[in-house]
């Protein structure tokens, strides 16, 4: 799993490349949450994620919950078909929202 973070001022971009599964959950949690320390807006690119399982989904949920609590604006710049399919199967098609304000978690 390759997680690239680029930041400028108070915004950052996180791009994930690889599987969001139990094998990478630990890494995903650490590297996706770390940039949230000092930014106001964050753009997430999930176009490189080709496999997702429940643990990947949980990391995504945690990420959304954290950004919501910290009032960070999240935008999903790109989402792969695999992730989109997984989310809609779980009844979560709208979880990534219109990419504006932190979409709440049920």
């Amino acid at each position: 799993m390759q997680i690239n973070v680029t930041s400028a001022d108070d915004s950052c971009a996180i791009a994930l490349e690889g599987d969001m599964t139990i094998y990478t959950a630990m890494q995903c949690k650490e590297e996706m949450l770390a940039p949230l320390q000092d930014c106001q807006t964050v753009a997430v690119d999930l176009s490189g994620v080709f496999e997702m399982d429940t643990s990947g989904l949980q990391i995504l949920a945690l990420f959304l919950k954290e950004t919501d609590e910290r009032n960070i604006r999240v935008r999903f710049s790109a989402v792969s078909d695999a992730v989109q399919e997984f989310l809609s199967f779980c009844g979560l098609s709208n979880i990534l929202g219109t990419a504006e304000a932190g979409t709440g978690v049920h």
Partner: peptide, 30 residues
């Protein structure tokens, strides 16, 4: 399960998901 019929509605719940520092990524909270 979906191969045995049709899922009419599904809701995913994370009420048990703890705060980030307490969340173990390898545990299931779903």
């Amino acid at each position: 399960l979906a191969t045995l019929g049709t899922i009419h509605h599904i809701e995913t719940l994370w009420d048990e998901l703890p705060a980030a520092d307490k969340m173990d990524p390898e545990s299931c909270y779903t």
